[in-house]
């Protein structure tokens, strides 16, 4: 198998894991009557202010142990957002293996843009 094949199958596995986490989290949400410290009614309000900005990675990881539906859904969404990022990371490896310096640099630039979006822009906007 070529590197790109591995990457693409990895992506699909990422999506399947995310799908399963979202489904499991949703079921738990209904069984437990809520999640993340909120009742299901609060969570389901159309204008509900319960959203991604309140969920940190640490908090989510803690909630997973407790089989908290909301934290499992959040983890599923994080896995989903991470799949293309992992793809870019692995593409850098693939271009290094191919000895393609131009595309190694180009892919590092794309990764840098992603990292700026994840770590820098939110701090600039919110504070």
């Amino acid at each position: 198998m070529e590197m790109n094949d591995i990457i693409s199958y990895g992506l699909r596995i990422g999506v399947i894991i995310s799908f399963l986490l979202l489904a499991l989290g949703s079921v738990l949400l209904f069984i437990n009557g809520g999640g993340g410290g909120y009742t299901i009614k609060q969570l389901s309000m159309t204008n509900s202010s319960i959203n991604s900005s309140q969920f940190s990675i640490n908090g989510i990881m803690h909630g997973i142990d407790m089989l908290d539906g909301m934290d499992i859904i959040m983890l599923g969404l994080i896995v989903l957002v991470a799949t293309p990022i992992v793809r870019v990371l692995l593409s850098i490896v693939a271009f290094v293996v191919e000895r393609n310096p131009l595309y190694t640099i180009i892919t590092i630039i794309v990764l840098t843009d992603l990292m700026i979006a994840i770590f820098i822009i939110p701090k600039l906007i919110i504070h």
Binding site: L43, S48, N51, S53, F55, L77, A117, I118, P122, I126
Partner: peptide
Amino acid sequence: AIYWALGYVQPF
């Protein structure tokens, strides 16, 4: 990533 931090992703 930016939408997440700004709270535009509503899990429900």
